[in-house]
Write a protein that binds this DNA or RNA. Structure first.
Lengths: 160, 160
DNA sequence: AGTGAAACGACCGTAGA
DNA sequence: TCTACGGTCGTTTCACT
């Protein structure tokens, strides 16, 4: 039995510790000044700015506002597993176009697509499921996981 | 191991159009200057600054750096549905403490907990499942949904 | 890739409608 | 809650290492 030649992955950039430190600073506060970050990581202000620019331009990182659904009156969140027929990419696009859908991923496994939805109420969730999601062509079945408590947030993830 | 800060007031203020517009600006670019935002939404720099401060202090919004796992060499992502016995909150805490786990939510439905994981390779995913996740007390069974394509991102969600 | 310095622009506190 | 304004600090550009 021969070993399978493992294709060297197009590993983008082996981030050095300084860039990791910069990212950590900006994960704590995306508006922290370059000068302040520079002090923390031991670099000049201009150097920090250059690195941040590269990191954002290359798509490694972006600095954005993220909102809390609960604070905006969307008390009901859920993950919905979807089984679909036909081209699942087309189904995923239609799902992504829905207002209440904030997350769509094509998966391998018992579900073809996972979507996260954000609703104001149970009623909205019900009509979303019935009138919108199940109405999409090639959606075969759905399974809903209503959120009880968010324990760890997606965008808090860092560079490990 | 980061717990999501709970909102102080379960009293969601209905955002006016100006604040929504400000949030949209910052969702496009979290570092956009207050002056520039002011021009776009028709407000003075100081007024924008005050509103942004309120929005962040009240937890409605936060401005942070978010990173792209793929760009950092984490080519394998998955959602894992977990069935657990005992106090699922305790299990969820232990899951959230894992390095490779970037998202944890307690749910009602066929799974008790959903976690999203970020791995460098299939091998890492396998050992994560076997050595880490299934090793946690009261984890009864798991079901894995390997990501094929991320279609819509969580933090792009706005104010509807 | 990094520093330093000077001009410019953004940010912050405070005062006042 | 907003505008106005002055002091301070951050950002930008550039010349240089």
């Amino acid at each position: 039995m021969s070993t399978v030649p493992r294709p060297i992955a197009p590993r983008p950039q082996p981030l050095d510790d300084v860039s990791k430190a910069i990212i950590e600073q900006l994960q704590a506060d995306g508006r922290r000044s370059y000068a302040e970050i520079g002090k923390a990581v031991g670099l000049s202000e201009a150097a920090v700015r250059q690195r941040v620019q590269k990191l954002t331009e290359s798509g490694v990182m972006q600095i954005v506002a993220v909102t809390d659904p609960l604070q905006l009156g969307f008390f009901r969140q859920a993950m919905i597993g979807i089984r679909a027929s036909g081209d699942t990419r087309v189904v995923a696009e239609k799902l992504a176009a829905l207002d209440a859908v904030d997350y769509v991923v094509l998966t391998a496994g018992d579900f073809d697509i996972l979507v996260e939805v954000v609703c104001e109420s149970d009623d909205e969730l019900i009509s979303l499921l019935n009138a919108e999601i199940r109405a999409i062509e090639n959606v075969v079945s759905t399974e809903t996981f209503v959120y009880l408590k968010l324990q760890k947030q997606h965008y808090n993830w860092g560079t490990r």
